[in-house]
């Protein structure tokens, strides 16, 4: 029997995201934090130099992290390690692939490098996750090769309202699409500016063709369960853990809430005594230029 191995396939890229479902992906800035996240039951970590809340405070241009930071985190844990590149910065993506990270997040949290084009993600062996605010944006990213989608929310705020808005928009549009007559699909694709074939595929599947997590503002176990009940496949928690009073405890509680997201009695139990949550900033108080979710095209 001929036994050839295929690598970097769509099935492998989308498949890794399927293994992360029902889990929590945590932002970490040091190997020590990565170990705390793994001990708490994170399914993956996002290796960063600064969490989004600090990127907001710091200002200036936010770029891919120093490879030294990423490599230290890759050495520290056995779970998958993700890292962010700037929107459209295909060389940062090449570098992350060369480092051997498990997933690249082409992220609006960093300062965009291209105000028109995203990275051509088909060209890489490693998978990409991208943010979206609506179904059209999600399907454009999948069209470019994203193997996983996350709703953007508003990173670094600790305010879940934007994550809810974006999840409701994506999932609501999928529900609308499912009930449409076939003849209406082309006009819908035009309206949401999405590739027609992917719109048809979404309609046939009754869901996005890739795994869809929530991100941007999740700070409590209740926030994580809220997003899960809305219908996402898992959650990213950025600043919400390591900007809180007791990161290890809060991290565990959010992991447990993501598994038992429909069990209100267990949610009450895991929400007890978690110490101070991150201080946060209401998304409504942000000026237009401070909103990160508008980045991406």
């Amino acid at each position: 029997m001929e036994q050839e191995q295929q690598v970097g396939t769509v099935a492998l890229k989308r498949g890794l995201a399927q293994m992360l479902k029902g889990g929590v992906i945590m932002d970490v800035v040091t190997a020590e934090q990565a170990r705390i996240a793994e001990d708490a039951g994170a399914v993956a970590v996002m290796a960063l130099e600064r969490v989004p809340a600090d990127i907001r405070v710091h200002g200036g241009v936010a770029r891919m992290s120093d490879p030294e930071v990423i490599l230290a985190i890759m050495d520290a844990v056995s779970i998958p390690v993700m890292a962010k590149c700037r929107i459209g910065h295909f060389v940062e993506a090449q570098i992350l692939e060369a480092l051997g990270v498990d997933y690249v997040d082409e992220s609006e949290v960093l300062t965009p490098a291209d105000e028109e084009h995203h990275v051509d993600k088909h060209a890489y062996k490693i998978p990409f996750v991208c943010g979206c605010r609506n179904l059209g944006e999600a399907l454009r990213r999948i069209g470019e090769g994203a193997a996983m989608i996350r709703t953007k929310g508003e990173a670094g705020t600790g305010d879940v309202v934007e994550a809810v808005r974006h999840a409701r928009s994506v999932l609501g549009d999928v529900r609308r699409l499912i009930t449409m007559a076939d003849a209406e699909v082309m006009a819908f694709a035009k309206e949401i500016q999405a590739p027609y074939e992917l719109v048809k595929e979404t309609k046939a599947l009754g869901r996005l063709p890739v795994v869809n997590f929530a991100a941007g503002g999740i700070a409590t176990p209740a926030d994580a369960a809220l997003m899960m009940q809305l219908g996402v496949d898992g959650v990213f928690v950025g600043s919400g853990i390591f900007k809180s009073g007791d990161p290890a405890r809060r991290a565990k509680a959010i992991v447990e809430a993501t598994t038992h997201f429909r069990d209100a009695r267990l949610l009450a139990e895991v929400s007890r005594n978690l110490g101070e949550p991150m201080v946060g900033r209401s998304a409504a108080s942000l000026s237009e230029t401070e909103m990160l979710a508008g980045r991406g095209w």
Partner: peptide, 8 residues
């Protein structure tokens, strides 16, 4: 790592 994942 993921880059070494394969189908066969």
């Amino acid at each position: 790592r993921q880059v070494d994942s394969f189908e066969t």
